[in-house]
Simulated scan of single mutants.
Amino acid sequence: MRTFAERLFSALENQLNETSLNEQSLTEQYRASIILCKKAMSKLKRYVSSYAFQNKEEEIHFFKTVKPQFYSKYIYFISVYNFIIQQPLGGDEILKEYINFQLIDIKRYFDHNQAFYQYYRSGSSQLDELYFTRGGFDVQAELEDFEEDELYSTSHDYKLSKIMANEKYQDYLNLELAKILNSSMPVSEMPIDLSLTWTANKTDLVELLYALVALGVFNNGNVEIKAVMSLFQTIFQVDLGSYYHKYADIARRKKERTSFLDKLKLALLRKIEDKFDVENNQQHSLKF
């Protein structure tokens, strides 16, 4: 099952990347992305409908990890598509108000699902069997986040998908807000355009930014990670997507947990040593 799901998800991401590179309008690109996600979701559902999970662990993995990967993308693209087509006419102030309304709505959803949201963000697993195996649906659960197909749903897999999508949508909105704020700056205060693009691994950038926030280098430590992520995504023209998942992957490493930071240190020491060697050689040659 894992092999099939991984290949299907990889194919979906390739198709989505191709869609983002074509010359269609943004609305057409997002509409195409929604269709691609829907097709992939249908293939996944057909496959699972004739598949018997080997044990509880495999079933939990599917409904906690695999299925939300597909569904969260679908929900995210729908959110962005609706944001674009419903965007009000007017100046920057009207657009900022529209974006802030969306951000407030997302926060309201997180607050409404605070207990499960904290469970998800903390990486907990003690309630996984209740949340991510079929047949565990509780009528006390939020009905609006339950898919009625009990053969292909658990009580919380859709809720998890929606939370993941909302986090990514929140990042998208913060990027749009940052663009407006940058464009409204006086020319003398606008940052110099160096056309910097992050070309290293995205997980490496996440590792670097979490380290900087942990050290408290911004605003004397009074800053949230999402604000830093939004700013650097704009500066380096990179979409870090679900950066909190990348951070979770970093935290789960058993060896070389800070591999990128370790590489940075070695690279800087090597550069310092090379410069020191060159200066020493120059001084030595001058003596003769």
Rank of each mutant, 00 (worst) to 15 (best):
F4G: 00
Y51I: 03
T199Y: 04
K67P: 01
E279V: 05
L143H: 10
Y76L: 15
Y30S: 03
Q118F: 01
S155K: 11
S25V: 02
Y117R: 07
D249K: 14
Q170I: 00
L269W: 00
E6M: 06
A5G: 00
I34F: 00
L181N: 15
G123Q: 09
F110M: 11
Y98I: 02
W198I: 04
S50W: 01
V223D: 05
L194R: 10
P186R: 10
K275N: 11
V238H: 07
D149T: 04
D239A: 10
Y47P: 00
V213K: 15
F9K: 07
G241W: 09
I34A: 02
K254C: 00
S183E: 14
Y244T: 11
I34E: 09
I225R: 04
E150T: 13
S230M: 10
F276S: 12
Y98G: 00
V278G: 00
L266H: 09
K263M: 11
D239F: 08
A200M: 11
L16H: 09
Y131E: 04
G136Y: 02
A52Y: 09
Q87R: 15
M1I: 03
K159G: 00
S125V: 12
L215D: 12
H112D: 13
Y109A: 04
R252T: 06
D128G: 03
W198Y: 14
L212H: 01
I235T: 07
I250N: 09
F77Q: 03
E97N: 14
K202H: 14
H245S: 13
Y47A: 03
L268F: 14
T3I: 10
Y172C: 09
T154Q: 07
L209S: 06
